[in-house]
Simulated scan of single mutants.
Amino acid sequence: MFEKILIPNPSAEKPSSLKPRKGVIIGLGQVGLACAYSLLIQDCFDELILQDIAEEKLAGEVMDFSHGMPFLAPTDLKAGTVADVGQNADIVIITAGVAQRDGETRLSLVERNISVYKSILHDVVKYCPDCIILVVSNPVDILTYVTLKITGFPSSRVIGSGTVLDSARFRALLAQEMGIDARSVHAYIIGEHGDSEVAVWSSANVGGMKIVPDGWDNLAKDEQDKLSEIYFNVKNAAYEIIQRKGYTSYAIGLATTDIVKAILNSQERVLTVSGLMTGLYGIEDICLSVPRVINERGILKTVNLTLSEEEEKLLVESARVLREVFDRVTF
């Protein structure tokens, strides 16, 4: 009956030369679902594959999303795997893994999530050999490094979501304190996405005006206390959210979408993603976050951010913490 409704146009038989934007999300827990929702409503992909071991739940989620398609730009949404329908994806987003428990550090998730990743990455390498892998699962820095080593991909094509979310939290809390739009605050969190992360106060600014213009040591005690409180709240935000609602999801979904858009649209955007360090600040052969330029090739460049002596010391310590953990794991 549908043949009478839709009449083919003979002049449209030649396929389009434009390559569809294709993505895969592996792992449809709360974070994966938030990523999928954010990516769909921001029209990031022409084709999006959702993969999860809980097949019945996955089918229900895809049905639920598909019923909202009349409100969105067209996206070919499918439930499946990299092997059956996800071949040759442009970006593979991995959110799979065990959830962080209340009171559990991100680094304590290492052993449990490495085993999950080993089972996933074989098919990614086989069926999406030219993709960019975006690691979102925690501990993101360790799993980004593990992904790099297991896949053998160039370091430009293995990216962790890193401290993109931490930097957003930093900007949001600073903006809240100053009563301005968070988009007008420019500030970075670097290092580990976790307990050893570093706030870069030396370059944090609003409209070019530094928040700490004369250095930390020249701040009054009450100003230091206020800024230290903001940093503490940024660093511990995930723990507080997990304690209150059981998981984090919405903000990391938005952060992931920001990274995806920078890749697909070749924005050459500076984002604090996690990637391989190759000597900057004396740090080598570990993944952590510093500002990096992102385009369609992945990590194009790393920003040589000028740090204070104390900030550089803390960043090196953050790298040491990550190296110590990684040296204890096997994969």
Rank of each mutant, 00 (worst) to 15 (best):
I25V: 12
I120Q: 02
I132Y: 00
F45M: 07
L109T: 12
V124C: 01
A83E: 08
D123I: 07
L77H: 13
I93T: 15
H122V: 12
C131W: 00
T81S: 15
Q87S: 10
Q51C: 15
D46V: 09
V116P: 08
K118D: 06
I25W: 11
P74E: 08
A36R: 13
G60Y: 10
L50P: 06
L33Y: 00
S115F: 04
K149C: 03
G103Q: 12
E111L: 10
S38W: 14
S108F: 04
K22N: 11
E61G: 07
T147V: 01
G60K: 14
K78T: 13
A99C: 08
A96L: 05
M69E: 11
H122F: 09
C35G: 06
H122K: 13
L33A: 09
I132A: 02
C128W: 04
L48K: 04
A79Q: 05
Y117C: 01
V136E: 01
H122D: 11
F45L: 08
A73K: 15
C131S: 13
V110K: 11
Q87A: 12
I120L: 05
I91K: 01
V124R: 00
N88R: 01
G80I: 08
V140M: 01
D46G: 13
L109C: 00
V62M: 14
Y145F: 09
F71A: 08
K57Q: 15
L121H: 00
Q30Y: 13
E47I: 12
N88M: 13
G32E: 00
L18N: 15
L121P: 07
V62I: 10
E55M: 13
T151R: 03
T144H: 01
L109D: 08
R101G: 03
V135L: 04
L18V: 15
Y37S: 14
V92M: 12
I41Q: 11
S108C: 06
L48N: 08
V85S: 11
G103R: 14
V116T: 14
T105N: 07
I94P: 04
I133V: 07
S38F: 01
D43M: 10
K126L: 12
P129K: 09
A89L: 09
T147K: 02
Y37G: 09
Y117S: 06
L109G: 01
Y127R: 06
D52I: 13
Q100D: 06
V98I: 13
T147I: 02
S108L: 05
A73Q: 15
E104Y: 10
G86M: 06
Q51M: 11
I26H: 12
V98P: 05
T95A: 06
V31P: 00
K149G: 05
T147R: 05
E104I: 10
I132C: 07
Q100L: 13
I150E: 02
G103T: 11
G27R: 03
L143G: 00
I93P: 04
M69Q: 15
A96T: 11
P129L: 09
G103I: 04
V92R: 01
L148Y: 00
T95R: 00
V85L: 06
S66I: 05
E104N: 11
A83M: 09
Y37N: 12
Y127G: 06
I53W: 14
D43F: 15
N138H: 03
A99F: 08
C128E: 03
A34H: 08
I132F: 05
D43C: 14
F65N: 12
D141V: 04
A83W: 02
L121G: 00
L143V: 07
L121T: 08
D76N: 15
T147Q: 06
